[in-house]
């Protein structure tokens, strides 16, 4: 069965997205596992010939949303966070760590959009379909996510930047 093969091929990409989305490897793999199991259970709903990757990411999104809801984990990302280390003296490894932390601090909705666009290189339309949101929302979340990330990586808080502008 072709889907089985494709499913296996897509595991590394699901893991990459999940790792960036949930911020920690073993919970990321938990999410991927739940996604794969759900995908098998729902495979009859997948329309052959359509984009299996997009379908799988939609499944993952739904699983993720349900998990977050179930654990009632508050989104820690809207909290004020201390500043990240100063740039300039950093090694690559530190940059990766800081980026990872900055990504984790984005609001979950914005993070999902940013990662699907950046890591999966999905078109904006695909992102809209995958997350079940209008394309205008995709664009505004993308814009906000990027601005926050940029501000964090500059070592300043996005809200400080906003007050400057207003």
């Amino acid at each position: 069965m072709d889907e089985a093969k494709r499913l296996v091929e897509l595991i590394p990409r699901l893991r990459r997205y999940a790792r960036a989305l949930v911020g920690e490897r073993s919970s990321a793999d938990d999410l991927v596992q739940d996604t794969l199991e759900r995908a098998w259970a729902k495979l009859h709903l997948y329309r052959r010939g359509t984009d299996l990757r997009a379908w799988l990411f939609t499944v993952m999104h739904n699983v993720h949303v349900n998990r977050v809801r179930a654990t009632r984990s508050s989104d820690p990302l809207e909290e004020e966070m201390p500043e990240l280390a100063q740039r300039g003296t950093q090694s690559d490894a530190l940059l990766v760590r800081d980026l990872d932390r900055a990504v984790a601090r984005l609001p979950a909705d914005q993070r999902a959009v940013l990662l699907l666009v950046t890591l999966e290189e999905m078109s904006y339309e695909q992102v809209a379909r995958t997350l079940g949101i209008p394309i205008g929302t995709v664009m505004s979340r993308l814009s906000r996510a990027r601005e926050k990330l940029r501000a964090m990586m500059l070592g300043q808080s996005p809200s400080a930047k906003l007050t400057l502008v207003k």
Binding site: A4, R13, V32
Partner: peptide, 19 residues
Amino acid sequence: AYETMLSDPVPARLARAAS
């Protein structure tokens, strides 16, 4: 930053879940 995940060996439990 996340590229290493693509070549990370897939844990057996995920491989099983894909079957």
